[in-house]
Design a protein around this nucleic acid. Structure first.
Length: 611
DNA sequence: TTTAGGG
DNA sequence: CCCTAAA
């Protein structure tokens, strides 16, 4: 599964003179994200090679254990790609027992079970600008009583809209076997309830007729994919990459994706599928076998697995059959005031999902509930084989960035005024809670009592915190970037998504980020933003080096003005002092750029300002 | 792509 | 944050 890395992302810089980068070293922190992601997807694709009849690794049980102490509304999405001739929505709407079952495996965490059924996709003709990620919430909130455990929400794809829905669940198997994905110990539960009606339907990824395209869907492009945006290459054409480092795939990105067949390969018009493969009467399913390039792996998309498919499996070793019932999205957190309406909650959920998808996603693999980080191991080494119990296998959708999107929902004026006296403008754009993000995070009780908002720390974050930067030479310990509590995706009552070029969501730097930035600049200077990025913000895909540079600029400015003139979340004076000191220092030492760390060290000695 | 600055 | 010239 070696994937070539392409560093220029298709952009030809051959004619562009390279600026001397003598001082730039290949920082070890330039992790193998790319390969990791690639292999992750390759893995996914590979695993999907065949159908597994009993891989009902209940995602809930698989993942629901490690995060019990945490909070909020976790959204678990279970999108099933179903090519069904029945109106999915109506069926879903009859699933009334969601709430009673869903908590079975998540007794200690709030879980919004989100299921969606994709039954139609018309992407090819969708104007880029309208290529929205539309996840329409059609399902009523069920059983959301005092117990948050009883919260269940259904998310379906909006009807025939141009909804570009990235499936967090790619069911590649035929689910004709009822054993599929039932929460353990339950005879139905959410899964049953929400999907049971489809059990007899084949769920598949309707692939493009072109084998190439199909496979490509599973590939991430390389370096330009710091944000883990799934991109593909079609033929020999390379996708034009969006601005490097830009965390948010913008419409542009979708355009790229779309036009290059990435999504298109996955979402086909139902008509097309039906026309050639689907037999509603027999409930037959489309059989699609796809070779994974030269891997020889076969991806079969449904239960109509033919023996042929099996025999086409790789020469050496056994193939692994599995179905991916659902992807778990552990990073979505919803905060809504008690007075929020169900409708607003739905919108919030939609925003959260949209934000996640828009931020680029990557796949996480869980075995035994534990995240598998080593992408180089083979499946068998990881303990996955056709003979092994794949119940332990799970997948997660992770945001491209390391942050945890937190959604707050300003619902009505009453509630707003009750929580803050923020300006109307702010209210209309930025969730109020943003102003109290720190507070809420730190005061679980306060939140807890309110039942909705419970700080959540994903396992991802936990992992990261366990791995402090080894090369950190912080004079002052730099705390690992905490989940950006302030990163809130504004919820607009009327999302203006129609604009071709949407401005990136504003993400105020948290104090910890500022701290990290300051520290990095103290050591690296003000002219090496790329290194700063790599060093301290490599995991924050939404922070580009330009962002860091800009932030530094504003920091310097902020530090230069009187405290009274400052606005926004206050930055500790101590940090501002360091900003000024570092700025002063590096302004004088621009010349000897090569000083690198030496300079930093000297700087401390000379000025004594950075202690 | 990265840096540097203006908008 | 965006946009761009220049490197």
């Amino acid at each position: 599964m070696v994937v070539k890395r392409r560093l220029n992302c298709g952009f030809d810089f051959s004619g562009v003179p390279k600026a001397p980068r003598s001082t730039r070293r290949k920082v070890s922190s330039e992790r193998d994200d790319v390969d990791s992601q690639l292999t992750a997807f390759d893995l996914l694709a590979s695993l999907a090679g065949k159908l597994l009849e009993e891989s009902e690794s209940s995602s809930t049980s698989t993942y629901g254990d490690s995060q019990e102490d945490h909070l909020v509304v976790k959204i678990k999405q279970e999108h099933e790609l179903v090519y069904n001739d029945k109106p999915c929505k109506s069926e879903l709407s009859h699933q009334g027992n969601l709430s009673s079952k869903s908590p079975s495996d998540n007794t200690s965490e709030t879980c919004l079970q989100v299921s969606s059924v994709e039954n139609d996709c018309v992407l090819e003709q969708t104007p880029v600008s309208d290529c929205k990620i539309a996840l329409g919430l059609k399902q009523p909130l069920v059983g959301c009583g005092n117990k948050k455990e009883d919260c269940a929400v259904h998310v379906e794809q909006g009807e025939a809209t141009n909804g570009l829905m990235i499936p967090d669940t790619i069911s590649l198997k035929d689910s004709s076997h009822e054993s599929v994905h039932m929460p353990p110990g339950k005879d139905g539960g959410v899964l049953n309830g929400s999907l049971g009606g489809y059990m007899n339907h084949s769920k598949l990824v309707c692939s493009d007729d072109d084998d190439e395209n199909y496979c490509k869907f599973y590939k991430f492009s390389d370096k330009c994919n710091k944000s883990y945006r799934p991109m593909t290459r079609v033929g020999h054409r390379r996708i034009k990459k969006s601005k490097y480092g830009r965390a948010f795939p913008r419409s542009k990105c979708f355009e790229d994706t779309r036009t290059d067949g990435c999504i298109k390969a996955l979402y086909r018009k139902r008509k097309l599928c039906y026309g050639y493969n689907y037999n509603p009467w027999k409930h037959e399913t489309v059989h699609r076998k796809r070779r994974l390039s030269d891997k020889g792996l076969v991806v079969t998309s449904d239960g109509g697995l033919s023996s042929e498919s099996v025999t086409n499996s790789p020469q050496k070793g056994e193939s692994v059959k599995l179905s991916i019932k659902s992807f778990r999205i552990p990073e979505l957190f919803i905060e809504v005031p008690e007075t929020a309406t169900v409708g607003s909650l739905k919108r919030t959920v939609m925003e959260a999902v949209t934000a996640l998808l828009g931020d680029g996603i990557r796949i996480g693999v869980l075995v035994q509930g534990k995240k598998v980080r080593d992408d180089t191991n083979t499946l068998s080494q990881t303990g996955l084989s056709c003979r092994e119990n794949l119940d332990n296998l799970g997948f997660t959708l992770e945001p491209g960035s390391s942050e945890n999107p937190v959604l707050s929902l300003p619902t009505d004026s009453t509630n707003l005024s009750e929580r803050s006296s923020a300006s109307p403008e702010l209210n209309s754009r930025i969730p109020l809670s943003l102003l109290h993000a720190d507070h809420m995070i730190n005061s679980g009780t306060c939140v807890e009592s309110k039942q909705e908002l419970v700080p959540y720390q994903s396992d991802i974050t936990a992992d990261e915190q366990q791995q402090p930067s080894p090369d950190s030479r912080a004079i002052v310990p730099v705390p690992p970037l905490e989940p950006d509590a302030l990163a809130v995706v504004p919820l607009n009552e009327k999302p203006k998504r129609t604009e071709l070029s949407q401005r990136r969501t504003r993400r105020p730097f948290s104090v910890s980020e500022v701290e990290a930035l300051v520290h990095a600049v103290e050591e690296l200077g003000t002219g090496r933003w790329r290194d700063v990025k790599l060093r301290s913000f490599d995991d924050a895909s939404h922070r580009t080096y330009v962002d860091l540079k800009d932030k530094w600029k504003t920091l310097v400015h902020t530090a230069s003005i009187s405290p009274q003139q400052r606005r926004g979340q206050p930055v500790p004076q101590e940090l501002l002092d360091r900003v000024l000191a570092a700025h002063r220092y590096w302004s004088q030492h621009q010349v000897k750029q090569n000083g690198k760390h030496q300079a930093a060290a000297m700087m401390v000695v000379e000025s004594g300002a950075f202690m």
